[in-house]
Design a protein around this nucleic acid. Structure first.
Length: 565
RNA sequence: UGGGGCGUCGUCAAGCGGUAAGACACAGGAAUUUGGAUCCUGCAUUCGGAGGUUCGAAUCCUCCCGCCCCAGCCA
């Protein structure tokens, strides 16, 4: 990919930064951060944020931190931290030594909280969960002040210390910011800063039983790290006044600026962590790294390249519009990348036996076939040819429709890098009518791919020598959902799962050169699509290939139209 | 019927008062030892709607309509 001549990226966030650079707002500094909560595996939506944050830092000569925003120990774990680290690295980004955890700031955050109490801007509230909700009011009705709102500083200090000491049960007390119960913005109605959770934290263990809330922790973490532009998604727009409130109240320096952009939505899949957890939990998919998942680990296993994902993230742009990106764009990005990189190879997914009647029994020829039609530097491999071959079932039709121009009785086609063959007979199961074998003759003069007499052939099909080919399992992946917007259909999203999202083919045959294929090697199976050797299940004795994406298939479109008629 | 956002081609998205970029998708065609890749061509007289300001508006003003977010001791 040649990115050297592409114009620098531009969007409303970069416009803001350009302006800030001009006015010297942050002393000309740009510092961003990618702040995932380690409670799930990162997905393609996170990739958008990763590319944005790291991309901006790189573009402006700034830095981007990786910060694990672990303020709620329930649901967070080291496994998730590891997946995040692994996947962001895999995507191609480097935070150097700036790996941070919100949990590393617990002491400092605690001190900030005490400071707010001292200033009379925070108080311990004894209301229960339901009462707090009730006192908060509704979207159209203002809230009421808590009866505990005006405790003395001393009492608040002592109560907060006792909260920390574990003297109170979960849900019995919280620390709240004293802001405005009448605010039309519900977020500002005395938001909770700390809650009691007697839960073991995957990093701090049992040293805390009170944990800071996102709104309190995030802005201060940003300030502590010297973040200049705190980029987050649209749903936090309502929280911005609160983000600013804490920074202002504590008068901290530096003062980061929150900017919100629209999160990614992708057609035919879901990108909500909650929904993905559900798919994993229910066993709908095999795990977070199932190739059907839009997680980075799933996409990696599916065969997506980091380059393709980054390219995609650039192409979709950054705005504040709620959008649903067409999965076709993502698919286009991988195809474009893999078209350049993937060596071509032949594999037959649904084998149909072909016997070449006039080819000598026992004879074997070795064809030297290039790995790439354009890029000769990729070299070539030897493909053996013999009397009995396998071709794709789809490439033969006994009664072909008008636009089908592959093999059929009496028809001649070219075997890729091989001879012209002509169908002279069909062997069928007398009971079912199923085609068991096709009989052909070959023209020995056509090994170059052309006939000396100049006669043309309509199609070129792929093949594999029956005796020399290797068995393989191929997993055909398709879109996870049948509908573009599984969340917008009215029914539960799982109702829209695509039953054909995964099809496992156990009797495939691949050319012998693939004996050398290593896990995560990618190939184009000619005329079929791009495939990758599965990183977890593939063995020498049991090769497993995952289909990343099909090739563009204009025949499929024609066939589909024909079927609809 | 509170507040905060957003509405430009099927899907994204430029545009920032001077007369609608680009990408994907789609449709044709050329060429082709992958019905692939490649290459051409076409694809918004119109910017959610209605008024207004202006010589001139997607861009400014007014009103209306639609969609999204917020009432977790989640982030």
């Amino acid at each position: 990919m040649d990115e050297s001549n592409s114009s620098p990226l531009s969007d409303f966030i970069r416009d803001i930064i350009d302006e800030d650079m001009k006015t010297g707002k942050h002393q000309g500094r740009v510092a961003t951060r990618f702040p995932p909560e380690p409670n799930g595996y990162p997905h393609i939506g996170h990739a958008k944020s990763v590319c944005l944050n790291f991309g901006i830092a790189a573009q402006y000569g700034g830095t981007c931190n990786l910060r694990l925003d672990d303020t709620d120990p329930s649901g967070e774990s080291m496994e998730y931290v590891e997946s995040i680290i692994r996947d962001v690295k895999w995507l191609g980004f480097d935070w150097q030594d700036r790996l941070y955890y919100a949990s590393d700031y617990y002491d400092k955050l605690h001190r900030f909280a005490v400071q707010l109490i001292r200033m009379g801007k925070a108080y311990v509230c004894d209301l229960g969960v339901d009462e707090i909700r009730e006192y908060r009011g509704t979207l159209t009705q203002p809230g009421r002040e808590s009866p505990w709102r005006n405790r003395s500083v001393e009492e608040n200090l002592s109560l907060f210390e006792r909260m920390r000491a574990g003297e109170f049960d979960e849900g019995t007390r919280v620390l709240r910011a004293k802001i405005d119960m009448n605010s039309p913005n519900v977020t500002m109605r005395d938001p909770i800063m700390y809650r009691i959770k007697k839960v073991n934290h995957y990093r701090t263990g049992d040293s805390w039983c009170i944990y800071p809330m996102y709104d309190f922790a995030h802005c201060l973490s940003d300030s502590l790290e010297g973040i200049t532009h705190s980029i987050c998604t649209l749903e936090f727009e309502n929280n911005r006044p609160l983000y600013d409130w804490f920074l202002e109240a504590l008068n901290v320096i530096p003062r980061p600026q929150q900017i919100e952009f629209a999160r990614l939505n992708l057609s035919f899949t879901v990108l909500s962590k909650r929904k993905l957890i559900e798919l994993v939990g229910k066993g709908v998919v095999g795990g977070w790294d199932d190739p059907q998942m839009p997680t980075l680990s799933g996409m990696r296993r599916r065969g997506y390249t980091p380059e393709a994902i980054r390219d995609f993230c650039e192409r979709i742009g950054v705005s504040k519009n709620d959008s649903l990106i067409d999965m076709a764009l993502l698919e286009n990005c991988v195809r474009e990348d893999l078209n350049e990189k993937a060596p071509r190879v032949m594999a037959v997914l649904r084998p149909l036996r072909v016997v070449i009647d006039n080819y000598p029994e026992g004879r074997v020829e070795q064809f030297d076939c290039p790995y790439h039609p354009k890029n000769t530097e990729m070299g070539s491999r030897i493909v053996p040819f013999s009397r009995v071959l396998y071709i794709e079932q789809d490439d033969f039709m006994e009664n072909p429709p008008k636009k089908f121009y592959r093999l059929a009785p009496g028809r001649e086609v070219r075997l890729r890098y091989g001879y012209y063959i002509k169908c002279v007979g069909v062997a069928k199961n007398p009971d079912t009518g199923e085609v068991l074998e096709v009989r052909c003759t070959y023209d020995p003069e056509t090994q170059s791919g052309f006939a000396p007499d100049g006669r043309k052939v309509d199609a070129t099909i792929h093949w594999v020598s029956a005796a020399h080919s290797l068995p393989a399992e191929v997993r055909l992946y398709d879109r996870l959902f049948r509908v573009a917007d599984p969340l917008g259909g009215g029914a539960d999203f799982t109702e829209y799962l695509n039953p054909q999202s995964l099809e496992v083919l156990g009797t495939c045959r691949v050319e012998p050169s693939l004996a050398e294929a290593m896990p995560e090697n990618r190939f184009q199976f000619e005329r079929l699509g791009y495939f990758i050797v599965d990183q977890v299940d593939s063995r020498r004795g049991n090769r497993v290939f995952n289909r990343t994406v099909t090739l563009r298939d204009s025949w499929a479109k024609i066939a589909e139209k024909g079927a609809k008629r």
